[in-house]
Design a protein around this nucleic acid. Structure first.
Lengths: 197, 197, 197, 197
DNA sequence: AATGAATGAGCGTTCATTCAT
DNA sequence: GATGAATGAACGCTCATTCAT
């Protein structure tokens, strides 16, 4: 990946964190923040739709690389699940308007069919990848006897959503003075365990 | 409420269900769909921001009026919770891009400060109202002995999200041939029960 | 003239005195200020251009009726000229954005040809009428021996302009604390006399 | 100053000379006359108000640079005053709707506060500059003994207005066949002399 | 006669995209 | 490759005018 392209991605991400994906995201602004000329942007992308599409993919890949904690041999279920939840919390801070990004269905509707398709496919792939990851983690728990029986697909989906919801609760519902990240991570873990046993 | 205003709301809702809240939602299109002149729209709203803001409020109120099943005396916990989940499924079909609408934080960022504030306040009110509703329903369960101890705020938040997630799973992850609404509603209920007991 | 028509004229004049002829003069505002319906305005005028055209004519007629002090038998030159200048000062206060109105050439350029013509003709008539009036007044002065010889057309035109300029000087250049209307009127008179003798 | 900006100014001036400042002066028209795209206009000005404001300032500066004949040592009063009047006549032909422009109070009322202020200040400055110029010219006449005593501020204001009025008389009242510019300039000079001695 | 809801032509302005340098 | 001046389609919004009541 070219350095210029990364510059552009980072400029956009910075904008999203500040103002959201939808407000005032103009090519002029992107170019200025990336410290390149407006024309230069079009050397790396063919259209604004492509920029948005590829940026979201870039973000999604970046997120995935951070949250899919490697399942090393001999690692314990509890350890890896908590590490994963921790990583999710961390990533949430990094991309503060991430909720929006994850609503990629909604966003993709602003794109023309071609990029919409591309984005939808990427999201589908990532969702599958994530579900598989959760399955693998849960398998560990089953192996350790912490989880009695292997849960169905639906429950795995819910587990993923509980992690997301917990983060959302932590950052949007809990007042600052009551926030304790370790405690919240633990609660999240306990909630998942309750569901799985 | 004027008939014309309703006409406009319904035109916008129809657009959202078809194309999402963000794509091609122009005044010209709204007017055409509502079968009124472009200028007429401005007889009922002062700006596009106001239109979006009021439409979302209209939708939110409509949703709330449908999902808050009345807690009548002698009604059973299971009965009301299932009825509520059913109502949530129904509402989800009615507003097919509802996920986006519920991400109102993201959407409101496209509005100017005044309407952004108005919308945020409405959302805050509704969230509080919904949490209170869930509390009351859960109280019933505690009273009936189905739920042993009264859960903390965080768990109530998670319960709400599980319902949303279940709907999302049902419509976006389950292939058509595997869908069975009654079964999914039951599963959702069982998942909540597991979390609360 | 209908009462309603007068109401409308007065509403517009009030607007002009407040905001000028050009700013925010909408039919909606006119109707509201005249306390009639918007449609009613079109019962008395066929278009906005006609409204503007007729209002200016109304104002011009009103001004003329106030400034053309009647030349009665035995009245003295000085007396009538000063009375005329006084009347000009008075009228200037009444129509505070009058300067603009008198630039009718400029204004009429905003109108369509038909009303532009009508207005130009009215202005031409009034100018002729005014020049004739000044001629008659000056004749008095010649008769009394105050003015030695009858001045040419050009000088008469200049006399009219000196009166206007003096008013403009008084209201726009002189600071409030230095204003003394009687003194200014006298100076104006003296300036004219100097020019004519 | 950019060439494009000048192009735009000149297009507007040409429009004003043809149709007046107020009629059909749209961005589309300006762009077309200046032979640039509509968007290009906004590369050089931030709003239509700014365009109008800056164009008037451009015109006023252009006028001032033409009419303030340099007062060189040993130059005679009569010579410079006549040259000034000549320059005023010339400028009047160049900006045929100039009367309107000089009514800048009236025009500025169509602008939003910011540009209205800017324009009013410019006009104030120019008026002061012009009055000072006339004072200096008149001083010459006093020095030469042509004018007996130094006139008060009011008279200087009137002198300026007589020049303007003479031009107005020449172009708007005198029929073409009677026009003789040299003669009119001389008459104007004589009128001023009469007033000052 | 009196009304004001309804209208749409027309405006100022934005911004993704192009292209000559 | 890198640029940004130039562009015009498309938008939100205003307001003179019409017309059913």
């Amino acid at each position: 990946m070219t350095t210029k392209k990364e510059q552009i991605f980072k400029a956009i991400i910075s904008h999203i964190n500040r103002a959201g994906l939808l407000k005032n995201l103009t090519i002029a602004e992107i170019a200025q923040m990336a410290e390149v000329g407006k024309g230069t942007v079009y050397e790396y992308f063919t259209s604004k739709d492509e920029i948005i599409c590829e940026t979201i993919i870039y973000i999604l890949d970046s997120i995935m690389s951070q949250i899919l904690i490697e399942i090393t041999p001999n690692i314990e279920f509890q350890s890896i699940l908590i590490k994963h939840i921790e990583a999710m919390f961390k990533v949430s801070q990094q991309y503060s308007n991430i909720d929006m990004i994850l609503m990629t269905d909604g966003i993709s509707s602003t794109l023309e069919t071609e990029h919409q398709q591309k984005l939808m496919n990427k999201v589908k792939t990532i969702k599958r990848q994530y579900t598989n990851y959760l399955k693998n983690v849960i398998s560990l728990g089953v192996g350790e006897g912490i989880i009695k029986e292997y849960p169905e697909e639906y429950i795995i989906y819910i587990v993923g959503n509980i992690i997301m919801s917990s983060i959302s609760y932590y950052y949007h519902e809990l007042p600052l003075e009551k926030r304790n990240e370790e405690e919240q991570i633990n609660k999240t873990y306990q909630t998942i365990i309750k569901l799985l046993t």
